[in-house]
C-alpha cells in the first residue's frame, strides 16, 4: 500500500533495472556525497550531543536523507525552502556551510544565528532557506506566504515547504492548502512521512489512507513516493515542480521515509521494535541503495567510495572542531537583534 512496499526487486533493484534512464554519473555521485554528508554530519551531531556540547532539542535526519537531496535537485536558485525542526539535512543541501551549522548547534557566535537560534532555528536568506521552525506545522502557512511573495513579485520561483506526518494533522495546514489552491500559489508541500509523530504512529494519529490525499478537498493533487529512493524522489518531485512552474498551483508530495534515531536525542524510541528499525537500515537505506546503483552501473569503485567517505569525514570533523573552537556569543549579544533599529 505504500510506495515503498510496491518495490519488487529489493534494495535498489527498480532504479538499477531502469539503468538506461539514470541521471548522469556525476549527478548520482553528487547526490551520494550530499546524502553521505548529511549522514556523517548528523552522526557527529549526535556524538556532540552525547558529550554535552549540543543542548536542548536536537532532531536528527538520519534515514531521511534521500528526501531533502532528491527535492533540492529539482529546485533552482530562484526557489525557496522552509521546513520544521528536523532541519539540518535541508540546510546542508541548500548549500549552507556545515561548520556554521555545527557552530549554531553548539551555541557559538560563528553559528548562522550567532548561537541564538540553535538546532531548530537557523536561516540563510541568501540561500533562500527560511528555517528551521520549532512549532509543528507553522512552516506551512509561512511557506505558503513565501510562495505568495514569489507570485506577487512574479520572479518565477516556488517554495518547497516541508513538514512531517505529525504536522499534517494541524489545522493551519488546511487553512494554507485552501489559500494556496484559491490563489494558485507556487508551492510544493513535501510531507516527510517517517511513520511516527514523536512516539505516535501515523496509524494512531491520522485518519484516512494516504497523507498525500489530504489536499484533495481543495483540488490539490498529491502523490506518494518511496522516500528512501533518491532517484524516485527526484523524478516525482521534478514532475510536480514542472506543474507548479506551469502555473497549476500547489502540489503535495508524500515521501515515505524513516528516521533511524529517536524523535529527538532524548527519545528512547520504545514505540517501535528493533526489528523494524533494523529492517529499514539494512533493506532500505537510501545511501546504500544509491551506492549499489552506482556500483552496478560501474560509475565508481570501492576506492572512490572510500575516498569520498574520508573527504566527508574530514569536512564533518573540521566542522566539529570549528564549532568547539569558536567562542560562545558575547554577553552583549543578549540584547541585540530584538528589533531592527531604524
Amino acid at each position: 500500500m505504500t510506495a515503498m512496499s510496491k518495490r519488487k526487486n529489493g534494495n535498489g533493484g527498480e532504479a538499477a533495472a531502469a539503468g538506461s534512464n539514470l541521471p548522469q554519473p556525476e549527478t548520482l555521485m553528487a547526490w551520494y556525497r550530499e546524502m553521505l554528508l548529511i549522514r556523517r554530519f548528523e552522526e557527529k551531531a549526535g556524538q556532540l550531543y552525547g558529550m554535552g556540547l549540543i543542548g536542548g532539542f536536537c532532531h536528527l535526519y538520519i534515514g531521511q536523507e534521500a528526501v531533502a537531496v532528491g527535492i533540492q535537485h529539482t529546485l533552482t536558485e530562484k526557489d525557496s525552502v522552509i521546513t520544521g525542526y528536523r532541519d539540518h539535512g535541508h540546510m546542508l543541501v541548500c548549500g549552507m556551510e556545515p561548520r556554521r551549522v555545527m557552530a549554531e548547534l553548539t551555541g557559538r557566535e560563528t553559528g548562522y544565528s550567532k548561537g541564538k537560534g540553535g538546532s531548530m532555528h537557523m536561516f540563510a536568506k541568501d540561500k533562500k532557506f527560511y528555517g528551521g521552525h520549532g512549532i509543528v506545522g507553522a512552516q506551512i502557512p509561512l511557506g505558503t506566504g513565501i510562495a505568495f511573495a514569489h507570485k506577487y513579485e512574479e520572479d518565477g520561483g516556488l517554495c518547497a515547504a516541508y513538514c512531517g506526518d505529525g504536522a499534517v494533522n494541524q489545522g493551519q495546514v488546511y487553512e494554507s492548502f485552501n489559500m494556496a489552491a484559491l490563489w494558485k500559489l507556487p508551492v510544493l508541500y513535501v510531507i516527510e512521512n517517517n511513520r511516527y509523530g514523536m512516539g505516535t504512529s501515523v496509524q494512531r494519529a491520522a485518519a484516512g489512507e494516504r497523507l498525500c490525499d489530504r489536499g484533495r478537498a481543495y483540488g490539490i493533487p498529491g502523490e506518494q513516493v518511496d522516500g528512501m529512493d533518491v532517484l524516485a524522489v527526484e523524478a516525482t518531485a521534478n514532475r510536480l515542480v514542472e506543474k507548479i512552474r506551469a502555473g497549476e498551483g500547489p502540489q503535495i508530495l508524500e515521501a515515505m521515509t524513516y528516521r533511524y534515531r529517536g524523535h529527538s536525542m532524548s527519545d528512547p524510541a520504545k514505540y517501535r521494535t528493533k526489528d523494524e528499525v533494523e529492517e529499514m537500515r539494512t533493506q532500505h537505506d537510501p545511501i546504500e541503495n544509491l551506492k549499489r546503483i552506482i556500483e552496478v552501473n560501474g560509475f565508481a569503485d570501492e576506492a572512490t567510495f572510500k575516498a569520498i567517505d574520508k573527504e566527508i569525514r574530514d569536512v564533518v570533523n573540521e566542522s566539529a572542531k570549528f564549532a568547539q573552537d569558536s567562542p560562545e556569543p558575547d554577553p552583549s549579544e543578549l540584547w541585540t537583534d530584538i528589533l531592527v533599529e531604524s
Partner: peptide, 20 residues
C-alpha cells in the same frame, strides 16, 4: 482572505520574511 486567522497571519509573516 478566508476566515482563517491562523493561516492568513502565518501567510503574511512568510510573505514578510520573503521581503514583502
Amino acid at each position: 482572505t478566508p476566515i482563517t486567522e491562523h493561516g492568513f497571519a502565518g501567510l503574511g509573516v512568510g510573505a514578510a520574511m520573503a521581503g514583502l
